[in-house]
Design a protein around this nucleic acid. Structure first.
Lengths: 216, 216
DNA sequence: ACCTGAACACCGTTCAAGT
DNA sequence: ACCTGAACACCGTTCAAGT
């Protein structure tokens, strides 16, 4: 029926509708997004060029308004806060995470955060030629932890284990988000305390830098 | 044409054909798998009940013949070897990784490895009620690192960065797998050295265990 | 500039028919 | 037991037509 006086759609409305569907059911189709917005599927293509672009718009949505770095805390605390906020941005939409695992790092929305990260690590004394490696380690841990938080509750089923030690460990640990959160904090402790210790020395893990031994 | 004298298909043949397609093009369709095996798409369903089961068969394929734990090395070395092997199992098929990120942990193929992991960590002195948290940390880091290794080469594009520190860091670091491998080894160093230090004390990061502070 | 309806190629899955 | 052909519902995408 021709174009309406005021547009019925926008990139944000589309991304937000898709995000609602993913949160609720773990997936989305163009048809469902269109139905949510009371529109025909082909209308979507006036605003975005395909499904992949909808996913990118969803990524932009959850990283929207990344707060500027407030550098007044000592670096371990700044770093800890940044990494928590980063993981939380993912963990608020657990079913979305698997859709974002391709080329996360290049997304322009996240670049701001890496800029902050670089500043903090530099102030911590990480040498320039190891800065990207440390960023990669932190990034890998955060994304892996977000995926872990996205996993269903019963992933750690004692029935799947054979080792009595593992069975006991599963029963001793909680379930769901509490377990995932606790593990994330432990990982932060392990990584940051090593960083703290190593940066007081001249460089990190010198034996490894020149060439890592591969496979046993 | 009815059934052949000897079956043309098997679960392994199907998984292997699909894996070849994913390695080559990053995705697969049932039709392509069927074509590769000179068979009609509907034939697949005599062996597997759908696309999701093909993915599970691919997971089983890459974890096939997980070697039994040889516990003669000191634990840090055993742990290092296990984690490298775990990551390599993924990293050999980088484009497959995003398909495996849902419910990784529950897969029966991987359980064997977690049994080994529990044994090693126990011998390292990790208390039972923290064993699963440590396993989760290691698992998150390995999976995050595998995803990083799967990322295309140009993810770290200096053009995307604004912070001069980050730009310098990107230029100082290499590209592609070498960079990813180096970062993985650094992460192992950071995590394992903390583990080593903390397990000589009575327990890991005691302040965090009872309840993690969330969001700044 | 933006919504619509019709049309397209393609995809996963089912199932009766065949040996 | 296992391959086939036909059929299905569904999906992403294109595009000329309408205002």
């Amino acid at each position: 029926m021709g174009r309406p006086a005021t547009p019925k759609l926008s990139v944000e409305k589309i991304a937000s509708a898709a995000l609602g569907l993913v949160d609720a059911k773990g997936e989305f189709t163009i048809g469902e997004v269109a139905a949510t917005l009371a529109v025909r599927p082909s209308s979507i293509y006036n605003h975005l060029s395909g499904k992949a672009e909808i996913v990118e718009a969803m990524r932009a949505l959850i990283f929207q308004e990344w707060p500027a770095h407030a550098p007044d805390a000592p670096w371990p605390e700044s770093l800890r806060r940044l990494l928590r906020r980063y993981r939380d941005a993912f963990a608020r939409h657990p079913r979305l995470i698997p859709m974002l695992t391709s080329y996360t790092v290049s997304s322009p929305d996240v670049v701001h955060m890496y800029d902050d990260l670089a500043t903090i690590l530099d102030s911590a004394g990480v040498p320039t030629d190891q800065l990207l490696d440390v960023i990669t380690v932190l990034d890998s841990f955060v994304i892996g932890s977000a995926l872990d938080a996205a996993a269903p509750d019963q992933v750690w089923d004692p029935a799947n284990a054979r080792n009595p030690l593992l069975i006991a460990a599963i029963e001793a640990a909680g379930q769901g988000r509490t377990r995932a959160d606790r593990a994330f904090e432990l990982g932060l402790d392990l990584i940051l305390s090593s960083l703290d210790r190593f940066t007081t020395e001249k460089r990190l893990a010198p034996t490894v830098v020149s060439g890592a031994p591969r496979q046993q």
